[in-house]
Nucleic acid binder design. Structure first.
Length: 553
DNA sequence: CGTATTTGACCCGCGC
DNA sequence: GCGCGGGTCAAATACG
């Protein structure tokens, strides 16, 4: 119990270190009302109460110490008073026996002191009672809050389980159907499936393509996106995987090879077509972030090494290729390119999942990438009820700002595009918080598409959300963000997101923060670990141009 | 001298 | 089969 609290307090310290102890309390309210919760937050009320007690006197240097001192100081005087009282009585008795005259004097003095003590006792007693009453009220309120949150958590868990069951059932159903059928049947099936998917009306439709479109796509890819809108698992995709496999087998490191190991063509191994399709989609899925920045790269907390540069068709700006160098063989790559129409817009496209622990700032983007991959994976699962439809998911993810998230599930690179270049409209600020948005993904998404490697996505998402709030508050470079934050503690996370977007557009380094937010919505990544959260990474290579550390860490 | 970047060459898939 | 374009490699170069 103690350790759990400690962890929660660490998180809170991380996110509200700029407000002081009292603000922890206020921040807690904010999270409650905005519908966020975590095991840590549930703990807060009790801790906060203790802290309040401490603050009533002097600021405690550390919570556990404050608790101990608090009780010790209250207990000690009591004992001391009793013992001193007994000693005085004994002394008086002795005194009475010895001299009577002085007894009067002594008694008088004693009486006076008794009266004084009584008054101070009364005042102190009343104060203590009032304080106690306040604390009880507070405690009651916190208990109510706690119950409410518990209820929400239970409901979320139920939804999670239900979705997981549904997902597993679908998986099993598909696996059975494909295993039983012959190889030829699979080909036919797949072809008909592709046809079906191509016919599906705008299922994979973008939620709002930015002005510059997908600059990292070729025209052909863009065309195929709008015309065919196929999803992963197409022969084209398989061929891509095959080619990559060949190339990788030539000179990649073993670690990197593991990244591509499962990327064999689906048709070559009909035993596990579904899993392989899913895996390929996961690994090929991309997250594209569009942000205004004069800097050559946005800060995402990772270390990157440039390994190539090409002139892309249709864009006078060269495209740079980077790979993650935080660990040997990390398969994560990213492409950086300026938008052809607006050179101030920097388009960063991430691909892959890190195979190493990440600093918190880097976790944000990594989570986004992984989660987006999960999202696209979900889209690759044919579903009768359309629950796994990426479009459905996308609408659920960001109902507040259709111009912010674009999901393009085109082969061979299904891409989620986060457009951070557009300032949110006032309408978005005024939008009332949708109830279902309080915990959007655990209910609608995370559980259903959680990869085996990401079992804690839900909690992590919440954690990220908390972290994002902290980032948003701590930076406070955007008056809009701060204003919106201060307007109401009941603002929805969507509004926070919109506000953060405003901040990001003025400071590209905020991208990581927003990514954290998106990530938290989407469901988190297996790379995330709450234990890593409160520590600042010591990046030894901060002087390199590629290792942009998140400012403020 | 070690490390990061640059840049031309190469590989591969795809469309014609 | 050929050319195009995306992506990657690796030798050359730059830099601290």
């Amino acid at each position: 119990m103690e350790r759990g609290w400690g962890l929660a307090l660490d998180n809170s310290a991380d996110q509200v270190g700029f407000f002081g102890n009292k603000q922890v309390f206020g921040d807690h309210h904010h999270h409650h009302r905005s519908g966020t919760t975590s095991s840590g937050l549930i703990m807060f009320p009790v801790n906060s109460r203790v802290r309040e007690d401490d603050d009533g006197g002097a600021a405690a240097s550390s919570p556990p110490r404050g608790e101990v001192d608090f009780f010790a100081e209250r207990n000690k005087p009591t004992v001391k008073t009793e013992s001193s009282h007994a000693e005085t009585s004994a002394a008086c008795r002795e005194f009475n026996v010895n001299t009577g005259l002085q007894l009067v004097t002594a008694n008088t003095g004693s009486d006076e002191s008794t009266v004084d003590d009584g008054v101070s006792y009364d005042v102190e007693d009343k104060r203590a009672k009032i304080e106690l009453a306040h604390l009880q009220v507070e405690l009651e309120r916190m208990n109510t809050e706690n119950q409410r949150l518990k209820g929400m958590l239970t409901q979320v868990n139920e939804n999670y389980s239900a979705l997981q069951m549904h997902f597993m059932a679908l998986m099993q159903h598909q696996q059975n159907s494909t295993t039983d059928s012959t190889k030829q049947n699979q080909i036919v099936e797949r072809k008909s499936e592709e046809k079906k998917l191509a016919i599906v009306p705008r299922q994979l439709l973008d939620l709002g393509v930015g002005g510059c479109g997908d600059d990292l796509m070729t025209e052909e890819q863009s065309n195929s996106l709008s015309e065919e809108r196929t999803i992963s698992g197409s022969p084209q995709n398989n061929n891509m995987e095959l080619s990559r496999n060949k190339r990788i087998g030539r000179d990649e490191s073993p670690e990197s090879d593991s990244w591509h190991r499962n990327k064999t063509p689906k048709l070559d191994n009909p035993a596990k077509p579904v899993e392989q399709t899913a895996d390929a989609t996961m690994r090929k899925a991309r997250v594209s972030v569009r942000a205004r920045s004069e800097a050559p790269m946005i800060s995402d907390g990772c270390q990157w090494r440039k390994y190539g540069q090409k002139m892309a068709k249709g864009n006078p700006c060269p495209r740079a290729y980077y790979r993650c160098t935080m660990a040997v063989g990390c398969p994560v790559r990213k492409q950086v390119q300026r938008c052809a129409d607006d050179r101030t817009i920097l388009i960063t496209t991430y691909e892959g999942t890190h195979n190493h622990p990440l600093p918190p700032a880097a976790m944000a983007m990594a989570s986004t990438t992984s989660a987006a991959a999960s999202m696209l994976l979900s889209g690759s699962m044919p579903s009768a009820d359309g629950l796994m439809n990426p479009n459905f998911l996308a609408r659920t993810i960001l109902p507040c700002s259709s111009n912010m998230a674009t999901i393009s599930a085109s082969a061979p690179f299904p891409t989620v595009t986060l457009d951070l270049t557009q300032t949110p409209t006032p309408l978005q600020y005024q939008r009332p918080p949708p109830v279902q948005f309080q915990l959007p993904f655990p209910q609608n998404f995370a559980g259903a598409v959680q990869t085996p490697a990401a079992p804690q996505g839900f909690g992590q998402g919440l954690y990220n959300q908390s972290k994002f709030s902290g980032l948003q508050m701590s930076r406070a470079v955007s008056s809009e963000a701060a204003q919106v934050q201060g307007q109401s503690s009941q603002q929805s996370f969507a509004d926070s997101l919109s506000a953060a977007t405003a901040a990001i557009t003025s400071d590209p380094n905020f991208t990581a923060a927003l990514a954290a937010a998106i990530s938290s919505i989407i469901g988190g990544s297996h790379q995330n670990n709450a234990n890593q959260s409160s520590t600042t990474p010591n990046n030894p290579n901060v002087n390199t141009s590629n290792s942009n550390n998140f400012p403020g860490n």
